[in-house]
Design a protein around this nucleic acid. Structure first.
Length: 736
RNA sequence: GCCGCUGUAGCUCAGUGGUAGAGCGCACCCUUGGUAAGGGUGAGGUCACGGGUUCAAAUCCCGUCAGCGGCUCCA
């Protein structure tokens, strides 16, 4: 006798168990028709779910025309569309394509599958797959759920010979996987297979009739019939790894999406296309902001004159803020000896993500004379590295700290490394002179360029590169100073985001994993540092997430993350507390007790890197920078040659006021000049003709405004613009 | 690094086995025009690079490099 509570609070009592569809029908024919699923006590379920006890029920419906589709409805459609796509692919490519895992995602769904050798899925088959999906949807076959006992289900899947589905089933049953033994196997529960109760069920969904139509192991839920999938489309291909484990099987991931209506799908595709026009790689080329040249190398940014202005303005801006906060500026070279990185721990441990060492000339000549090949040379370098990694002195057999691990008579190949981080150089500056507690904190800032060997497939415009300049600083402070210093770093980030009008970011506070013991430093220190990070994040006034396990092994951190136009997330600013570096470099300061103490180091980069930040900023503004950042702030447009002379006078006045201005004295008509300047996102146009010349005026146009603002006296225009630039205003505000 | 796709003029792209194309941009000429592209003429290409198949390759095949979308990674 279940009592069903509806979202509006109404209660319905039934004298026997009913399905959610029955309940919908009892409310109204319209609801029954629109229903595609339900939520029972907050859990999304099939519409056919049987309700045999009291519960709260909400019916999930297709939207009415003009109504927004609910996230639950989209989830059901996309989860169902993944089945339809998988069936279509098996029809088009072959039944021997083995399905692995196919969940809904933020904008659609994907299905990972193993494609046997000799077969492949390519975009050329998309049309055929789409067509077959359309047919399956048109057939309006029911999604039929059936359950079998766990042992029976497992035998069934094993007989089908698809180890991925066996793995899924075992995970669903809380068993350790019998087929996957990779590095991510640990998450399976500790139950033994023998302990699994056959009363536990596995659910399957047939797209049609069980035993007759296509089916898949799946926990559901789904829409009632394929026809309830409004519109679906296969989107793209990628490779993926089973369990995300790169040592494991490589799978093919097929992405698709589904929407309630074809119009929604078309709108989604259109939005994607519009977003791609804001892409910093597209705008950067069009506005000549940066260039990447094959001959220079992938992931290496060439800042063109226009882009360099944007970067320089940002650097000038932040440098002024740093002076206010008592930073001192330093300069350090782009390379350092391997010794330095043995101390810091960058070499050899992270050699896969660094450029190969630069071997000294004499060593290179000696190696070359002895017939040493390049490969052997690396072995010589890395042979040392291996002994270092073992941390054992081969003679004494004792464990030693990093620097002492090299035996004095070791025929070490000397060399340098392109710096992957600035901190070792800064640590050496700190160590170069004694410090009293009275000097602390010592804040060393540098726009330091670092180089990292990112995997080629990971490179992306300005946002993921192999050489980049961090607006880096290291704050050497006492334990007590951590909260105030972290606070200061965050206020810097806040100032930057506020000045640029960036509101759409999220903040992650990386904390210890409570169950791991990989962390450097005492528990008490960590507690204090974590509390300082959380308090600082709270003071930002924006929501943030606490992420246990996301701390670096050397300390907690606060990261600022923004999305690009395609929806990918990029980390920009970061603040990290580090207990480790001072130990590695044996840094100290003299306390009031006249004894040496360990400082704590805070690494921080409010922009993150100039490259990534500018890339994100280009997309944020769609290339339409505020006046203070614009490479060209005003373009002077003479009506005709007859006004060129006055235009030159206007240009000179602007330049004398440090305004970045240019003149368009081509023989285009003024209409064309306006179009060109608008395309180039120039903030202001000063149009001058004989009338303006006579009155000492300019006719002003502001970017984004359909018609001209009217005439202004030249000096009023210049001074108004100057103050807008000086104040770094985010909006264009010059008005007659 | 992995999977799929792509690489033709400075830019955006057409060209699918038979003499390399368009628009924009650029140069020059005409036009001297008051608010989102006036007109004409012209220059510009080892069709990413290296092999192969073929009488013949931008086009088909193999390899390399680079770009794009994902995966993995990101001290």
């Amino acid at each position: 006798m279940p009592t069903i509570t509806l979202p509006n609070g109404d209660k319905k009592v039934f004298d026997k168990s009913v399905s959610a569809a029955d309940v919908a029908a009892s409310i109204g024919a319209g609801l029954a028709k629109a229903a595609i699923g339900c939520k029972v006590d907050g859990e999304l379920r099939d519409l056919s779910s049987v309700l045999d006890k009291d519960c709260a029920l909400a019916i999930v419906t297709m939207p009415k025309p003009g109504q927004a589709v609910s996230a639950d409805a989209l989830y059901l459609m996309r989860h169902s569309a993944a089945h339809v796509m998988a069936e279509a692919i098996q029809d088009v490519i072959g039944k021997d394509v083995q399905l692995a895992y196919g969940p809904p995602t933020e904008n659609g769904f994907f299905y990972d599958m193993f494609v046997p050798a000799g077969k492949k899925i390519s975009t050329e088959q998309f049309a055929a797959i789409d067509k077959r999906m359309g047919e399956i949807i048109a057939e309006n076959r029911p999604f039929s759920r059936y359950e079998v006992g766990s042992q029976e289900g497992l035998s069934k899947l094993k007989a089908e010979g698809n180890k991925y589905k066996v793995d899924n089933a075992e995970r669903a049953l809380g068993m350790p996987s019998s087929v996957y033994h990779g590095k991510k196997a640990a998450f399976a529960s500790g139950n033994s297979a023998a302990g699994v109760d056959n009363a536990a069920k596995l659910s399957f969904y047939a797209t049609g009739a069980p035993g007759k139509n296509w089916e898949d192991l799946c926990r559901g839920p789904h829409v009632p019939t394929t026809g309830r999938i409004g519109a679906a489309k296969v989107m793209s291909l990628a490779s993926s790894y089973w369990h995300g484990d790169e040592d494991s099987d490589r799978l093919m991931r097929v992405y698709g999406t589904a929407f309630a209506t074809q119009a929604d799908l078309d709108e989604f595709l259109k939005q994607k296309e519009e977003a791609s026009k804001r892409d910093h790689r597209v705008i950067g080329k069009h506005l000549r902001l940066f260039h990447i040249d094959e001959d220079v190398g992938q992931g290496l940014i060439l800042w063109t004159p226009r882009g360099s202005i944007v970067r320089k303005e940002l650097q000038t801006f932040i440098a002024a803020e740093l002076r206010k906060q008592g930073y001192t500026e330093v300069f350090t070279p782009h390379i350092g000896r391997l010794e330095l990185y043995k101390t810091s721990g960058h070499f050899p441990y992270y050699k896969d993500s660094q450029f190969a060492p630069i071997i000294e000339r004499d060593a290179l000549a000696a190696l070359s004379a002895s017939g040493c090949t390049c490969a052997e040379m690396m072995n010589r370098v890395e042979g040392v590295a291996e002994r270092l990694a073992r941390g054992i002195n081969e003679r004494s057999g004792k464990e030693v700290i990093a620097k002492d691990r090299i035996m004095p008579d070791d025929k070490l190949v000397e060399g340098f490394m392109l710096k992957p981080m600035n901190c070792p150089h800064h640590a050496k500056i700190f160590a170069s002179s004694p410090h009293s507690y009275r000097d602390m904190p010592v804040r060393l800032a540098e726009f330091g360029t670092v180089y990292r060997w990112e995997q080629s497939g990971e490179l992306n415009g300005m946002t993921r590169v192999r050489g980049f300049t961090q607006d880096d600083a290291h704050l050497f402070c006492t334990e007590d100073q951590i909260p105030a210093e972290v606070q200061g770093c965050l206020s810097l980030v806040k100032t930057i985001f506020a000045t640029l009008g960036m509101k759409d970011y999220r903040v992650r506070v990386g904390l210890r994993d409570p169950n791991a013991d990989k962390y450097t430093g005492s528990k008490e220190n960590w507690d204090k540092a974590e509390a300082a990070c959380i308090a600082a994040a709270e003071s930002l006034g924006v929501s943030f997430s606490r992420e246990p396990g996301e701390a670096a092994f050397y300390g907690p951190k606060i990261d600022f993350v923004v999305k690009d136009v395609i929806g990918r997330e990029w980390q920009l600013g970061t603040v990290q507390v580090d207990y480790n570096m001072a130990i590695r470099f044996d840094l100290s300061y003299i306390g009031s007790d006249n004894r040496p103490h360990r400082p704590v180091v805070i690494h921080r980069a409010p922009f993150g890197s100039m490259e990534r930040f500018c890339g994100v900023l280009i997309e944020h503004f769609a290339g339409a920078f505020p006046a203070w950042l614009s490479p060209e702030q005003v373009r002077v447009l003479p009506i005709s040659d007859k006004s060129n002379e006055y235009a030159q006078k206007v240009l000179a006045a602007l330049q004398a006021a440090d305004v970045r201005a240019a003149i368009d004295d081509s023989n285009d008509r003024v209409q064309a000049k306006i179009k060109i300047a608008a395309d180039e996102k120039i903030p202001y146009m000063a149009i001058v003709g004989p009338r303006d010349a006579e009155a000492g005026m300019v006719s002003v146009r502001a970017r984004g405004v359909e018609k001209d603002l009217g005439g202004m006296a030249l000096d009023a225009f210049v001074s108004s613009l100057k103050s807008e630039i000086k104040d770094r205003r985010a909006e264009l505000g010059v008005k007659p």
